[in-house]
Nucleic acid binder design. Structure first.
Lengths: 346, 346
DNA sequence: GTGAAAGCGCTAACAA
DNA sequence: TTGTTAGCGCTTTCAC
């Protein structure tokens, strides 16, 4: 295998073809002012010579990098991994590179991620906020330079950025209403930090469902946690100590729902007979736990795809895409974990 | 908020301080030839002026990009997401950017991923191979330019690249031996494409355990699939039609193990009494399925961290790090799904 | 310890 | 339709 040392440049191609560098440059990017035959000739010769486009020279001139930054709370959740799959699909189709970083659910780390991506000169940013992000000041460096930002899932209102979400209020309302229909009267809400729309909205839906059904709200039935497996286990233990015990749980993700169920069952509680459970996200695990988990289906991949598409639209034409929020459909999937009345087929 | 238009360059800083651009450049990268006080002054003024390093100009000169490419089969598996977390941690510590792409388990797509990353001028590459990659020719463009490659998990021998793996042979042997100890004699092996070390090695371990225990090998007990949920379900259906039925299953991942168990249980098969099951990966789901899944624990995060560390070592000093394979520890975790003899605490 | 100057490879304004 | 030319911002060799 011969190791080629120096890179082939458009100058080399130009010399080989007795043309000027600009003609080569234009031909390679399909500029309309170049004759078809010339283009074809240039393409083939460039290929044969092993020419490859130098992004750095190009970026240096053009002031954009064809790179999109992504900040997610954590990579290893099924929802995020799936959303990223969608993002990657779209961005790669449009020839954008992706720089992915994790805020580890921490405001502080989120600030540093954004600063790093800013210094990497990303053309735009996709972000889902960390748990405890309290203000948006760290986005100012981006806004100052007109770098577009698209929020997905965990969103915030700022500078007319686009947000891609589902109707978390409605989903929370539906989940809670479903529990009430099943005869639940003492329903736990287990959610994450109320700073985040996903949790505060689901909570708002929960409250609304209680109100409409004239069920008194009890602050003790609201549990705020970091939504980890551990949090689910601890919630179960807390529930076991409650008197009277709740008869329903609505948790804002499947991970804690499953952890809670596992722990409750260990203590001999019957699900759903004694306590009915509804989760959120429709992760694969929801169909493995016994009883199968009632949950809200959530179009993760699509959210990613639409977020990426919106950002690219903004990048291509900063006028277009003047929408501010895109709301995708969700879906309550009823399984055994919440069915107190009827029997579902198992 | 004032929108700043033009970028501040080292020339601007130089002019402001009545120094030359080269001094600024040197000071900013802590060159020893610059006086400490000069450096400090330059640093503060540059900061005040809003100077930020321009990677493109720098890359254009220096011929490297501080970017590492990653190719994974799929993002949305727990193992990969966790490995990526490890990779991201290390690379970001060393100031590298990450470009992540997915081969979607396809050789063809893998070729295009590598070509794209090559054109993005990545300094090095981390890769876990797709299912059906049959040769390594698509890596030649990298080797020709001395771009180092580190394989992790799904590896291949080529050009003395570093590989980060576990001892899949031993793990397969241990898993199968454990089933045999539990009294299994007719053990299914459910694995992926034998082109991939992870599957062929686990299979080799399976064969070795059978041999050592004088159990006749039966080709019908080997099932090769794409290791999806669907494949697990289909395998279960196939097993249900088998006469006599197997009494043990060793599957090369937890996803198929769980899908198989779910389907077998639907048909009334008792796990582990009638069929014992051992999976691979110790994904969270293995502790949710009833009975809890016996599986091989696999240090995903560490594999990612070590892969990234090795690559960076190669990048910093192409001499050092002349090792070819790093083998990490795995661990058989025995849970109820395989315990025919004794009772585990539930 | 600091400065001058050339050039990395590409693009786009302007010229022809 | 094609060519000329001037830089984008940084690094580095060589000079002082």
């Amino acid at each position: 295998m011969v190791k080629s040392s120096r890179e082939v440049t458009i100058y080399d191609v130009a010399k080989a073809l007795n043309l000027s560098p600009s003609t080569i440059s234009r031909a390679l990017k399909d500029h309309p002012h170049i004759r078809k035959e010339t283009k074809k000739k240039i393409r083939t010769v460039a290929g044969e010579m092993g020419y490859r486009h130098n992004k750095f020279a190009s970026n240096l001139r053009q002031k954009y990098t064809n790179t999109i930054g992504v900040v997610v709370p954590r990579l290893n959740s099924h929802f995020m991994a799936t959303a990223l799959t969608g993002i990657e699909k779209i961005t790669s189709e449009y020839g954008y590179g992706l720089i992915i970083s994790q805020s580890q659910e921490s405001w502080r780390k989120e600030i540093s991620c954004i600063s790093t991506l800013f210094n990497s000169r990303v053309d735009g940013l996709l972000i889902s906020l960390a748990f405890d992000t309290k203000n948006m000041n760290h986005f100012d460096i981006l806004f100052k330079k007109d770098i577009p930002v698209v929020f997905f899932d965990r969103v915030a209102d700022c500078h007319g950025c686009v947000s891609i979400i589902i109707d978390n209020y409605k989903a929370g309302y539906e989940a809670t209403s479903h529990l009430i229909e099943q005869g639940c009267r003492k329903i736990i809400y287990l959610g994450g930090n109320m700073l985040r729309n996903v949790y505060s909205e689901r909570y708002r839906g929960y409250r609304q469902a209680l109100d409409e059904n004239k069920i008194d709200f009890d602050q003790n039935m609201v549990i705020i946690s970091d939504m980890s497996v551990q949090a689910g286990t601890e919630t179960a233990r807390k529930i076991l100590r409650m008197k009277p015990k709740p008869d329903g749980i609505f948790t804002a993700n499947d991970t804690t729902a499953v952890a809670t169920i596992v722990e409750l069952e260990k203590a001999g509680i019957k699900i759903p007979e004694e306590i009915a459970v509804v989760g959120f996200n429709n992760e694969p695990i929801s169909q493995v736990i016994q009883p199968n988990l009632t949950t809200i289906d959530y179009p993760a991949r699509e959210i990613g795809e639409i977020a990426a598409t919106s950002l690219i639209a903004k990048l291509k034409d900063s006028q277009t895409a003047n929408l501010s929020t895109i709301v995708l459909k969700h879906n309550l999937i009823v399984r055994q974990s919440s069915l107190k009345n009827n029997n579902a087929d198992s």
